[in-house]
């Protein structure tokens, strides 16, 4: 079990903290693929851990002073707990004790504290929050998800940032999805070279020269689920809006299925017949089941899970964190950013 990655886990994050994340971590400790450092109220965690199967050789607790919020869904309490515990978790990363952080804290708090406490992976490169979205099968591989970044909600980015995001996204697709030559696209209003705002047009001119990944040009939002690219690059504000819309559509579909189930016996029978397919559809389209959104561009990786994440989703996030650390995602991102610098030196004409 030597040389395993160490995953730091914030047990305060999420609307069902600490039970969902603790159960997920206990289960993952039995897989033996990573060392887990749980940051939380040690006495409380130990009390709850006693009724779970776990492996103490792979699961350790780092005490944090804050009590767990009493009422789930209390946004203020969740934010206060995150502000007390996340600095301890991030310290473990900066001290070199941990390789990756998994948190289901409110995304805005996780973003703010991570960007404050962790150094950027390269000077002048802003971090980007990435999110996976399901697509139709793509030519590049088996991964049913494409990566959209940045989805942080940050209002605008320069063309340099968009190019850096493309490099980081390509590195992620190569390391995590196993795509050797990822297809990268810029989100814009049209497919032409001059379509979109000036930053997108300028980034397009630079990315055309990329050789480490395949730049496939601009893409409209409607094309994202069609699977035309492995990585879709946008500014943080637009990306956030796109992700929100996709999540809303997924919720609508699920609500419609529930309505149909309760409305008519014949519809219920039909859904029963379709159940394997609909179940599969739910697993790929339910954002709460994905695991975590990687926060790229910092010296250490942070995975931000949806606060509504189920135990399964959090277990997926922990497994994904282990995979990223084992495959050296941060190193690959830094390497890809270095390579992209050369594109700028070649000019933007």
């Amino acid at each position: 079990m030597a040389h395993q990655p160490t995953i730091v886990i914030d047990t305060y994050g999420g609307n069902s903290a600490p039970d969902a994340i603790l159960t997920a971590a206990a289960k993952q400790s039995l897989s033996g693929k990573a060392q887990l450092l749980l940051v939380g109220d040690a006495a409380e965690l130990q009390r709850r851990l006693a009724s779970l199967s776990y492996d103490p050789m792979r699961l350790r607790i780092v005490g944090a002073p804050a009590p767990y919020p009493r009422h789930t869904g209390d946004a203020l309490a969740a934010t206060q707990a995150a502000r007390a515990a996340l600095p301890i978790a991030l310290d473990l990363l900066t001290d070199g004790e941990g390789d990756v952080l998994v948190t289901a804290a409110p995304p805005a708090v996780a973003w703010e504290l991570s960007c404050d406490m962790l150094k950027p992976i390269a000077a002048g490169v802003p971090p980007a929050l990435a999110s996976v979205v399901p697509t139709l099968p793509r030519s590049s591989g088996d991964d049913p998800f494409a990566l959209v970044l940045d989805v942080s909600g940050t209002p605008s980015h320069e063309s340099e940032s968009l190019v850096a995001f493309a490099a980081m996204g390509a590195a992620y697709a190569r390391v995590v999805s196993g795509v050797r030559q990822p297809q990268v696209s810029l989100l814009s209003t049209g497919l032409g070279l001059d379509d979109g705002p000036p930053a997108v047009v300028a980034a397009h001119r630079v990315l055309k020269k990329a050789s480490d990944f395949q730049f496939v040009g601009n893409m409209r939002a409607v094309d994202i689920p069609r699977g035309y690219a492995d990585v879709v690059v946008s500014d943080g504000f637009t990306g956030h809006a796109v992700r929100g819309l996709l999540e809303g559509l997924t919720d609508l579909t699920i609500d419609a299925a529930r309505y149909a189930w309760k409305s008519k016996v014949t519809w219920r029978a039909g859904l029963r017949l379709l159940s394997p397919g609909v179940g599969m559809l739910k697993r790929v389209s339910e954002f709460k089941e994905y695991g975590g959104s990687p926060l790229l561009g910092l010296e250490k990786l942070v995975l931000v899970a949806n606060p509504d994440s189920s135990e399964t989703a959090l277990a997926n996030a922990i497994a994904l964190a282990g995979k990223c650390a084992r495959r050296g995602l941060s190193t690959e991102v830094a390497k890809q950013l270095d390579a992209t610098q050369e594109l700028w030196q070649g000019g933007t004409s």
Binding site: M1, H3, T6, Q35, P56, M57, R58, R60, I61
Partner: peptide, 19 residues
Amino acid sequence: DFRVDAHGLAGSIEDATRR
């Protein structure tokens, strides 16, 4: 013989103390 690392030893000791 079983390739347990420092974290594994520490985790066991900490768990034993907490329990």
